[in-house]
């Protein structure tokens, strides 16, 4: 009967598509999708790491942030605990940018050993907690934009 044939044909087609799609995702993409490199990985690339558009991810090294409010000039170091790379960026950082914060920066790693960033993104943790006693969240929110001297 044609109905039976059509049904099994459709099921077989779906099966083939499912397998192809699954292979693409698991086999093909897994090794290629690297959203950002860590400082250690970028340094390990040696000469190949320079002057290519890429993303660098890690933590803002505590105490490394130098923010010039007049010139909108931001310098800091990104670290993954092992490696560390200096980053230079123009423009104000996102509001939640601070020491120890996870960040992803887009740009190019220059031959001078400074990563020239065109965009700084703050990675947010998956934890949510209320401020401790005596802390006012509105104050904390504002203080994130202040100079790191404090």
């Amino acid at each position: 009967m044609t109905t039976k044939k059509t049904k099994w044909g459709a099921l077989a087609a779906v099966g083939v598509l499912v397998i192809a799609f699954g292979w693409l995702i698991y086999g093909g993409l897994d090794s290629n999708v690297v959203y950002f490199l860590t400082p250690k990985e970028l340094l390990a690339k040696g000469a190949e790491g320079y002057d290519k558009p890429m993303r660098l991810g890690g933590q803002v090294k505590p105490g490394s942030v130098v923010w010039d409010e007049q010139k909108l000039d931001l310098r800091f170091a990104v670290t993954d605990g092992t490696g560390e790379i200096k980053v230079h960026s123009k423009g104000a950082p996102p509001q939640m940018f601070k020491d120890g914060q996870g960040v992803v920066v887009e740009g190019r790693y220059g031959h001078d050993g400074v990563f020239k960033s065109t965009s700084v993104m703050v990675k947010h943790s998956n934890e949510y907690k209320a401020p401790a006693k005596g802390e006012r969240p509105s104050d904390m929110y504002k203080s994130l934009m202040k100079s790191p001297a404090t």
Partner: peptide
């Protein structure tokens, strides 16, 4: 979980204050 992302991983009830 599988890839590095800008998006945070799933929040677990432990990482979430009870009022949230």
């Amino acid at each position: 979980q599988w890839w590095r992302t800008l998006h945070q991983i799933q929040s677990s009830p432990r990482g979430l204050a009870p009022e949230y």
